[in-house]
Design a protein around this nucleic acid. Structure first.
Lengths: 106, 106
DNA sequence: CTAACGTACAACCAAATGGTTGTACGACTC
DNA sequence: GAGTCGTACAACCATTTGGTTGTACGTTAG
């Protein structure tokens, strides 16, 4: 489970991959369509897509000789939920500090 | 700016670092206090803290011979805002699809 | 049928990552 | 003042990452 979270954040830690994610969230695209957008080899883009797919942030569906890539909002939600937890932890710390202040007031 | 985002997500892509973040969001801690919690060398923990600090997810404040580490909720918000953008992109795609359906209905 | 297209995958390479040990040095303690 | 504590940092190592080129193979077009 930790590995899954690792993969999600790791996949997001690269400009090209974030851009691929943006594109495929806006609308589906084939790997070669994606590759045309970047100044690197087809194989490099292919690898980036594989990293995103491995993190579940993107799905790959065969269609003839093409592979259609689509962004997966579900995984974005998962990442959001994880970040929410840290915020919550922080807020609960504040609550505890407030409690201490309340005790002082008694 | 892309580099900053890279650093944020990269810092989050490691279990130990996420745990340090959790701990320091819940309450401040010195580096050696943190190091005591993990089965690795002091220097390794020190490096993890440096990565978190480099991403702005954590602050380091000198206090005598200790360095006090605190989680920084502001950066968590930044990461959340980034993820929100992807969701928004996805929703606007749906809106566009809906528009097409509306055109069909005319 | 042949040629071109889209993809997969292996092999290779430089740089970054995550860990280690060792050394140094200021800050407290006694 | 001497020793211990907390930290910094360099050097080193194995593995992973992000890129490359080359080869192979199914799919579509002419």
């Amino acid at each position: 489970m930790d590995d899954e979270v690792d993969r999600i954040f790791r996949a997001l830690a690269d400009v090209t991959r974030r851009d691929i994610l943006r594109r495929t969230m806006a609308g589906e695209a084939s790997v070669s369509q994606l590759a045309a957008a970047y100044d690197m080899s087809f194989a490099a883009v292919q690898k980036h897509v594989a990293v995103l797919e491995g993190a579940g942030l993107v799905t790959k569906q065969p269609n003839g000789r093409e592979r259609i890539i689509r962004g997966n909002p579900e995984m974005i939600h998962k990442a959001q939920a994880l970040l929410d937890r840290y915020e919550e932890i922080w807020r609960s710390r504040i609550d505890r500090l407030d409690s201490l202040l309340d005790e002082d007031r008694d």
